[in-house]
Amino acid sequence: MTLLSIKNLKKYYFCGLFNKKEIRAVDGVDLEIKSGRTLGLVGNSGCGKTTVAKIILRLIEPTDGRIIFKEKDITKLRGRELKNLGQEMQIIFQNPETSLNPRMKIYDAILEPLRIHKLCSTDKEYEKILKLIEIVNLNQELLFRYPHELSGGQLQRVVIARILSLNPKFIVADEVTSMLDPLVQAQILNLMKDLQEKLGISYLFISHDMDVVEWMSDEIAVMDEGKIVDWK
């Protein structure tokens, strides 16, 4: 069953003061992600794969094209409905060291999504957080530290725990392990795969490491200069 599909997605930027130059960051991309499956998106840096991800999450407005999530067009969603969309699709960024607010303790960072969406009463917060950190296998004593006191792998676990609190159906993983060491990379990717099996999450897995993408994905799309050039 198709969970998310994008059709003819385009994003053009215009730059230059006088001779406006058109830059086609994304130029007519079609993708389809089945529920409970992983679509790998590979390409060199600057090929537009992160832009695609941000458009899907509605962080950037596309120039043209449609995004269909759960058989519903979400391209023009606003207000309340857009806010609810935040519970269903989420993103994990490349650099775990900048993915968390340096002035927010891990405890608050993990609970932030629940607080924003008012999904958990204050007295149940502690119970909830213990469940979350157990899922991602994070040590309880790290909860009251600041992000700079944690290692990259631990931070990426925090990011995953925080997103899981919303029970999302779809997660964009943007180069999640490219900053991590091999052993940590193996831990995080295995965790992500386990979560997929247990919770039926779909991933859009973006990377430039072909070996990693092959291990992780069911289908692979190769992107170059804003277009999908190959399917595997």
Binding site: K54, L57, L59, L82, K83, L85, G86, M89, Q90, I91, F93, Q94, N95, T98, S99, L100, N101, M104, E112, P113, I116, H117, V159, L166
Partner: peptide, 20 residues
Amino acid sequence: DFIEGAKALRASNIYIMRRH
């Protein structure tokens, strides 16, 4: 990234300015 992340969580602008 953590501001982008907060936006993806659909936090309101006032919340992002105040908390982040």
